[in-house]
Design a protein around this nucleic acid. Structure first.
Length: 1106
RNA sequence: GGGCGCAUAGCUCAGUUGGCUAGAGCGCGGCUGUCACAUAGCCGAGGUCACUGGUUCGAGUCCAGUUGCGCCCACCA
């Protein structure tokens, strides 16, 4: 160290100021962060990778939604990513952690809309108040706000992202990637427009994905409606079918009805209003009535539409006709009539049935799809329903009102058979909470069923290109692709990437237009898809699609856009599903597709250097939505491989989900979330991180009991819990201060549920968890261990530098480990072992094991034993000081990935300490600004692992513990020096082996408060068993109490007898000696002999007290 | 309906290929104001490893089944 540094730190005044007794994170974290940023410590250099100088290690952040602040789940996710990134950076990899956020289409739009409504800025329909551009501007402002919040949270946590490269899924670079990807899929025929049933949110007036819906049980009814049976096809001369006629046809039960009256069949439905769109009635082919109805039709009341009775095995037989127990036990059989109304435009299953029976339905003169609803879910005759008949009375009603009116109309005509209450789950929209309407709509699809997409994704798994950790999640991934459906990518929103397709539905092209389009297509600026029409087709109007669609490749190609718009093409109004841009994350963040020159070189430098990335670190619910799609897209787009390209990441690590103390998901509505910034404020970022790592086990879920911080007293306490109406266990809305019952506070649940409001007298109590004390205490422990170590190293180091000049100090020959004392060899061996354990744990994503290994090493081995053991000797031993410095530095380095701040602060001081190097220990210096974050991971050679020293120290440790136990029983004051009497030499061959030498004796003296060690017997002494022999202690107290000594020994004998019985039993089992491995048997014998010897010794002693 | 996970000390969790006299942290009880750290140290109490069977010399661990809790996917007239 330089002399001025040494002077600064050695002056006691500054030591106390700079090293207070407690580690205070807020004193250091902002400053350390600034140092990292100033040094550009997290900026990755692709050139080092491309030149072969360093291997890449890459993680792409799962971009958090800009809808809200980050919660503890994010904190866990990002802590793990940062730990990995920092670890590999220290291992010498060129580490890139790419940060960014996601625009989260529907979620963000809904949040902003809600905000505007809450503030009163928006009252009526959105589209009346704002133009598209105006509203997008509002969202943009909101996005900027939350992106900044999120970035701040990540940075406060110490996330070592390459912040200069931060991306947003809707920024220009990502938009370019989205456009290019869409273009290529469109060109290759993998994007198509389809009329399909989607989950329609009538409030937001948009299609929503399945995962944007939730199921909720509601009390509804089954309505039993009668549909009259008729003969003829055309409604105007449809002839009623009489019961007599049905009876002649052999219809079961027809004779029970008045013969000359018109016959009917009964359908059961929960949504009677949809009858307006019925285009068939289905019956099971196994229904005994089916044969009699062949060729008959029903006429829909009021509408007058005549629709066929068709046979489809999807229909459940009513209980009475069930053919077996399985059918009988089908819950639907209880409610079923055997007739299913088929409404293809308003029910997904009916849609399938409609497709299967297209011909029959159309032969009745009807379309398969009759859409009776407007986008706002009112009954409408403007969206595909023309044969309204007298049903026009329903037009214009919202669906709820229409339901009542339809039921009333059936009742009035005597066609309502029954209403039975029925509780069933109904799909609701996450965002608007409205009931989802299955709705027929034009949508864009990606044909992921194409083998170049789905199959390529599974091949990546089967060929071992992608590996899941834990492995079980591979199954989820695989099965998803086996059953994949085409991916609907259009959303009727304003916030998102516009669908880059222009359509032409009316008018006529001129030959000039067509020639121009052809030119644009041939130069790669537009695509008309696989079915790009020939000139002849267009001119003769035989274009396959009525809608002729064009994708424009580049957003800024205004010339092409102007040209096609002039021809009458209009851009699609929809935006793309958020996951479309997320799926491109591994490409877009790394600069794909790049300039022409970059493309010629195989892609931009970043892309070539860092894709495939190393690890994707995410939660399990996203395997299908995101992981799968990234694999498909990367393999399809990267290079010209079309499904054979590289995977986007090699490892997928799925971490646990954090739940609250009741095993419930943390959510806003339950008010059980914990803000990472609150934890950073009270415990520090390292505590947050270490604790999260410590709980990151391989299970699916981990629990984090949530406590409250009393806003009056700052006390942390577990809240009083209640059951809410949905059955969740939640903190009571109002809580009482544990210290002062007069003071109250409201909880997050109270506010979220609207049951309580924060006021000046009754402030909001923030959530925390006492679990984070673990990390805070550990950081403090490290801090204090460092204080002690530095006081030893600096005090003595100064003396050394006075005696020797710097040159000779730095030229010191490395210390040979063999020359070290046992305790030092033990310490180095422990460090070597545990650092390797920690490393192995981290590389296999066992974060909890990683944290535990280093916790035990630092706290148990280093602080509890090593520091205590060397106190008397370290001042006089240069070699021991070297071991102390190296051990501490290794621990600090190894902990850096999980506790970056406190370790950086410690390292700042530690690195100035000069001691002799130790053979076999390599700690590579920092690459950037002397910062630990770019220094090397501690490497300990095999020679440092010393089983003999570990064994020897363990024996000392056991002996010391045994002595301490006696001391505690006798209440010996800590400072009182006692006398240890070694056992009879004959009894204790073991004494010579490990605990018999002077070094061991010295350790026992230090650690167990022993003054004298003697082989002589004492008159008044207390015996204890160790290593199969009887050892004795004297000078514990002035007099030994015979009664309590008898109690103690009696208990010890009982314990030993118990284990003797166990061991005896094992050995006397005839099979044991024969079949168990020899070393096991021998070990059991040794244990038995030892226990017996100890028991006998204890008995002897007991007799003396008798 | 298909897939997956969990059940071990009062609480939160470890426990790798069966060898265990079942561990850790917190909490609990006792002692300690000590000089790195009271966010600490030392000592201690606390467990029929959900249940039932099976395999084995030996089961917390493997197999079969049961019960309870949870998650994902599909479906929901």
């Amino acid at each position: 160290m330089s002399s001025n540094e040494s002077n600064t730190v050695s002056s006691s005044a500054s030591f106390a100021t700079e090293f207070p007794k407690q580690y205070r994170p807020s004193d250091h974290e902002p400053r350390v962060w600034e140092q990292w940023v100033a040094a550009k410590a997290f900026h990755a250099d692709p050139a080092r990778v491309l030149s072969g100088e360093a291997k890449p290690y890459t993680i792409l952040i799962p971009p958090p939604n800009v809808t809200d602040r980050l919660h503890l789940g994010h904190a866990l996710n990002n802590t793990l990513q940062d730990s990995l990134t920092r670890f590999y950076r220290m291992k010498g990899f060129e580490a890139l952690w790419m940060p960014g956020t996601d625009h989260a289409g529907i979620a963000t739009q809904a949040v902003v809309e809600k905000r505007l409504r809450a503030s009163g800025e928006l009252t009526g329909p959105l589209r009346e108040k704002f133009s598209r551009d105006q509203f997008v501007e509002k969202i943009q402002a909101f996005k900027d706000e939350y992106e900044a919040v999120i970035t701040g949270q990540l940075q406060k946590m110490g996330s070592s992202c390459d912040w200069a490269r931060q991306r947003f899924t809707m920024d220009e670079q990502c938009a370019t990637a989205v456009r290019e990807a869409f273009f290529r899929l469109f060109r290759d025929g993998l994007i198509y427009r389809g009329k399909r049933l989607v989950n329609w949110d009538p409030v937001l007036q948009t299609a929503v994905a399945d995962d944007e819906c939730f199921d909720e049980e509601i009390d509804g009814n089954f309505y039993y409606l009668r549909y009259p049976l008729v003969h003829a096809i055309k409604s105007q001369d449809s002839q009623p079918v009489t019961w007599n006629e049905l009876a002649r046809r052999g219809y079961l039960g027809a004779e029970q009805h008045p013969g000359e009256e018109p016959a009917w069949i009964t359908v059961a439905t929960t949504r009677p209003e949809t009858y307006l769109g019925d285009t068939a009635v289905a019956i099971s082919p196994h229904d005994p009535r089916a044969k009699a109805l062949k060729g008959l039709f029903v006429e829909l009341p009021m509408v007058g539409r005549v629709i066929p009775v068709i046979e489809d095995s999807y229909v459940v037989l009513p209980e009475a006709f069930a053919r077996n127990d399985e059918e009988k036990n089908d819950p639907k059989a209880k409610m079923a009539t055997g007739f299913l109304k088929v409404t293809p435009a308003h029910d997904p299953n009916d849609y399938e049935i409609g497709q299967r029976h297209k011909a029959e339905i159309e032969s009745a003169g009807n379309q398969v799809l009759v859409n009776i609803l407007a986008p706002d879910a009112t009954i409408s005759d403007k969206h595909g329903w023309s044969d309204v008949g007298s049903a026009h009375v329903f037009v214009g009603y919202p669906r709820e009102r229409a339901r009542k009116e339809v039921v009333a109309a059936f009742k009035a005509k005597g066609l309502l058979e029954a209403i039975k209450p029925h509780r069933h789950s109904v799909k609701h929209s996450d965002r608007s909470k409205a009931i989802i309407e299955p709705y027929l709509s034009d949508q864009w699809y990606v044909k992921v069923k194409d083998p170049r997409l789905a199959k390529a994704a599974n091949e990546a798994l089967h060929e071992g290109k992608v590996t899941f950790h834990p492995a079980r999640y591979a199954k989820t991934y695989e099965q998803w692709h086996d059953n994949i459906r085409d991916w609907c990518i259009s959303r009727q929103l304003w916030w998102g990437h516009r669908v880059p397709v222009w359509s032409f539905s009316t008018g006529v092209h001129t030959l000039n237009d067509l020639t121009q389009l052809r030119e644009l297509e041939e130069t790669g600026r537009i695509s008309q898809g696989l079915r790009s029409p020939s000139l002849e087709e267009v001119v003769t109007s035989t274009v396959p699609d009525k809608l002729h669609s064009i994708c424009v490749r580049v957003e800024s190609d205004h010339e092409a856009i102007r040209a096609i718009e002039a021809m009458g093409f209009v851009q699609d109004l929809d935006v793309l599903d958020t996951w479309f841009s997320s799926a491109l994350w591994p490409l877009s963040t790394l600069g794909w597709p790049g300039t022409d020159a970059e493309q010629a070189a195989g892609g931009p430098d970043l892309l070539r250097a860092f894709n495939p990335t190393s690890t994707l670190c995410t939660a399990r619910e996203i395997i299908t939505l995101w992981v799968s799609r990234m694999v498909m897209f990367n393999r399809y787009f990267f290079g010209e491989a079309m499904g054979k390209g590289p995977v986007p990441f090699r490892d997928v690590f799925i971490h646990a989900v954090i739940q609250d103390g009741q095993g419930q998901k943390m959510s806003k509505s339950l008010g059980n979330g914990v803000d990472p910034l609150d934890i950073i404020a009270t415990h520090g970022a390292d505590a947050l991180r270490f604790t999260l790592c410590h709980m990151a086990t391989e299970t699916q879920d981990v629990r984090m009991p949530v406590d409250l911080i009393c806003p009056h007293t700052s006390e942390v306490f577990p809240p009083k819990m209640i059951q809410n109406k949905d059955g969740y266990t939640v903190p009571a809305p109002i809580q009482t201060s544990p210290k002062d019952p007069a003071k109250k506070m409201v909880t997050g649940y109270g506010v979220a549920s609207g049951e309580a409001k924060a006021t000046a007298d009754m402030p909001l109590a923030r959530n925390t968890s006492s679990k984070f004390d673990l990390g805070r205490n550990f950081a403090n422990k490290l801090w204090n261990a460092t204080r002690f170590a530095l006081s030893m190293l600096e005090a003595n180091g100064k003396q050394e530098s006075n005696q020797t000049n710097k040159q000779s100090a730095s030229a010191t020959t490395p210390i040979d480990v063999k020359s070290l004392a046992m305790v030092d060899r033990w310490m180095l061996s422990r460090v070597a072992t545990q650092v390797r354990t920690a490393e192995a744990a981290l590389t296999s994503y066992q974060f909890a094991d990683h944290a535990t290994a280093l916790y035990d090493l630092a706290w148990r081995d280093f602080c509890d034993w090593y520091l205590e053991a060397i106190k008397p000797t370290v001042g006089a031993s240069t070699a021991q000081r070297a071991v102390l410095a190296h051990a501490l530095e290794a621990i600090v380095r190894a902990l850096h990935p999980t506790m970056p701040y406190v370790t950086e602060v410690i390292f700042e001081r530690l690195r100035t300490i000069k001691t002799a190097p130790i053979q076999g220990v390599t700690m590579i210096a920092s690459r950037k600004a002397n910062l630990l974050c770019s220094a090397g991971w501690p490497e300990f050679g095999d020679a440092l692992i010393d089983p003999a020293a570990e064994l020897a120290f363990d024996r000392v440790r056991t002996l010391v513990t045994a002595i301490r136990e006696v001391r505690a029983q006798y209440n010996v004051p800590p400072k009182r020096q006692i006398t240890l009497h070694l056992p009879d030499v004959k009894q204790a061959a073991a004494v010579e082996d490990g605990v018999g030498d002077d070094a061991a004796h010295a350790l026992v003296r230090t650690l167990a408060g022993v003054g004298t060690i003697t082989t002589q017997a004492a008159k008044i002494s207390v015996a204890f068993a160790f290593d199969g022999a009887e050892w004795r202690l004297s000078d514990l107290t002035d007099a030994v109490d015979a009664a309590s000594e008898r109690t103690r020994l009696t208990k010890a004998i009982a314990d030993l007898d118990k284990s003797i019985a166990t061991l005896d039993g094992r050995l006397s089992n005839p099979g044991y000696a024969d079949k168990a491995p020899a070393h096991m048997v021998q070990q059991t014998r040794d244990q038995l002999n030892k226990a017996k010897a100890e028991r006998d010794a204890a008995k002897n002693t007991l007799e003396q007290f008798a």
